[in-house]
Design a protein around this nucleic acid. Structure first.
Lengths: 147, 147
DNA sequence: CTCTTAAATAAGAGTCATTCTTATTTGTCA
DNA sequence: TGACAAATAAGAATGACTCTTATTTAAGAG
């Protein structure tokens, strides 16, 4: 049923919840598991649709709140999308984004040249930078020919 | 009544509308004029409140649609704000973002070094890049001491 | 193992920012 | 001076949260 052994990550998730005095509920486990298994960057609604299959009685609010809670303790990343709903990213490592403005898809990419961006000195003085990301907006391969 | 001579910009606006087969309506002129006069990055609702003073019968939809139309022909820039309404910017230059993960604020900044980021060749082959932006996440001056 | 209690959940109402629909009005060009 | 496509006003509808309230439950205490 699962793509690969995700138990270590799940265990890490549980430990992190405990460290933050968050209760380990079956709903939260199902939500986190579904997020790990997703290859895209799902929206709260996409997550809701997925988790419902396993948990027919779960509410949208529970899914959304759980995702925001996970983001609050650094277990997932929230990606802002212009003109669209928030997307949640289970990968919290540094990486960059291609954002297709036609279909809304967000594609991760790594690029050595972007990994060592320097923070301008006057910014570093006033803002404690935790992560750096380059966002390229444009059209993905699927959407580009259409126009 | 006006802060400075904005007629040349207004004339440029009118010419650009004509080039795009857009009708020059008094509503659109009032909206563009108000946007030029605003020093912040107003939301559609802020613009609506301002333009209403001159045009009591204007509707929110007209203001919002006009702003989006102006954005469509490159006369204004739309700034995405995490968890908040769109903001419209009469300055269409590229800029970057500081995103405070504690308070959610987004602070614009310019940095010469970020303005010439190169797009990796293998990305450029599969994705038509329209804009590039660096997003720095972290803690702003107000939130940093708290932790 | 049972109790206690603060935290989490389900359901649904409410809110905010758009976005759409429809009837009416108005620039623009023949 | 029409004709007509485009734009507008008003209000309904939509999407994405966000809040409220009553109910249930995880997890530490005893």
């Amino acid at each position: 049923m699962q793509k690969y052994d995700s138990e270590p990550r799940l265990q890490h998730f549980i430990d992190t919840c405990r460290q933050h005095q968050l209760k380990i509920t079956p709903q939260r486990v199902a939500i986190y598991r579904a997020l790990m298994d997703s290859d895209q960057h799902p929206t709260a609604d996409m997550m809701y649709q997925t988790v419902r299959e396993e948990f027919p009685s779960i509410s949208f609010d529970t899914v959304n709140r759980a995702l925001l809670t996970f983001a609050g303790i650094g277990m997932v990343d929230v990606v802002e999308v212009f003109g669209g709903p928030k997307r949640f990213d289970p990968d919290i490592d540094d990486h960059h984004h291609l954002h297709c403005t036609a279909c809304g898809r967000i594609i991760d990419f790594d690029h050595e040249g972007y990994s060592h961006l320097e923070v301008p000195a006057e910014i570093a003085r006033q803002f404690k930078v935790i992560s750096k990301r380059v966002v390229l907006k444009g059209l993905c391969a699927t959407c580009a020919p259409e126009r």
